[in-house]
Design a binder for these strands. Sequence first.
DNA 1: CTTAGAAATGACCATGTGGTCAATCTATGA
DNA 2: TCATAGATTGACCACATGGTCATTTCTAAG
Lengths: 233, 233
Amino acid sequence: MVISKFITRKKAETPEETEQFSQLPIEKKERITEAFINEFAKKGFRAASMNKIVERAGISKGSLFNYFNSKNQLFMYVYKVAFERVKEYLREVREETKDEEFFTRFQKIMEAGVTFIQKHPKLARIYYRILYTGDSPEGATILRELHAESMKFIGSLVKQGVERGEISAEIDVDKAAFILESVLNRFLQVQNQNVLDPSLNLYGASSEESERWIEELVTLLRNWMGESSNEPV
Amino acid sequence: MVISKFITRKKAETPEETEQFSQLPIEKKERITEAFINEFAKKGFRAASMNKIVERAGISKGSLFNYFNSKNQLFMYVYKVAFERVKEYLREVREETKDEEFFTRFQKIMEAGVTFIQKHPKLARIYYRILYTGDSPEGATILRELHAESMKFIGSLVKQGVERGEISAEIDVDKAAFILESVLNRFLQVQNQNVLDPSLNLYGASSEESERWIEELVTLLRNWMGESSNEPV
DNA sequence: CTTAGAAATGACCATGTGGTCAATCTATGA
DNA sequence: TCATAGATTGACCACATGGTCATTTCTAAG
């Protein structure tokens, strides 16, 4: 019966939405997508229940499996949606802060990150979940892409900062990018995960509190790595 | 039948090992614990299968549920074991590097982290998993404790560094600790999660490569925040 | 109003889950 | 040798899972 494995396979599993699903009325599509995101954000991939999703979305199971061939494909679709939104957002921020001085720019990027998480906490949860559960191998692929983009983004900022003389010229660009990316990532993480936040009181903090934190962090970083710093070893 | 809920409850669920389990021959205990760790590291809490664990450990299901009252309690036990080992390790490193200069100390701590992950990759996986799955609420409690410890640890290092004049005195200790902790954490994360490592080539890197990376990172940090740095704003 | 084709449905399936417990085995002491 | 108490077992349970598909419902053209 090995052959049947190949014969009965319906379609390749792509992250793309099925034709049938894409042709649905927008309102219904959105309601369903919302239900997907909620369930995956709450439970992660593996524990997410197709039955619950069906229930939340108010459609029948048969329909769901007409729209998507498998749980995996459904997840890939959700993930792709989230991914696109994040990329879009990154692009906007980069454009908006194009002419700012390096550290001001970095500060605004951090603030934008906070805003994004506050606006889309569910998507953030999905992102942070997939990172470590590693449930869905294809998800990992997309994630790698996303992360690479983020590193490239920060890396280019740093390089530009050096060229403009806003950052000490002798600095190792890659390492500096790594450090900045670490701080940025960690900060957003703490905003999103109360587990990590026993003493900082940043989880669920107000925008004002977050912004003050960011400002102080950036001030610190600026004094450390700003171009007026001492000569390197 | 609400009452039965309380009457039939066997024991409070503590992370402690059961009396019965603790009295097992050490060899058997270790074999079983190993099986636990393997399964949880591979699948995470929710997807880990008690049946598989039983199979791996070579014991019967009845025995397993004699040793631990529930999957949750079993997980708590495993987690506690891992937690103790990490704490123990942290303590050692702190003691060993007591008299070093701040940045040298920080460097050694990073190296120690890498070593730990290389020695106990499974435990690291469990740690990184539980972070975001949030499956087990009690697990989150322990995790918070661990993280708080790590922050306290780095915080005290920084304070000491300032007192000794190895770090610029005007620096905000909390923020500096946050930054250092971010970098440390991120670095270890990248070592452990290939998803995060598209360009850095640190995942599964040799000790030598890791150490060179660490050295360069620390050099950078030292030049930025070392006491010979420029005056703060 | 009829009817053909598409869309939606939910009962159903095999499989796997965490957890139980009466029956069996084992080791010790008399 | 037997009796007894504790440890060990695995068949068994109710339930949930992802996925299927024969049937019903909807829709729109003739």
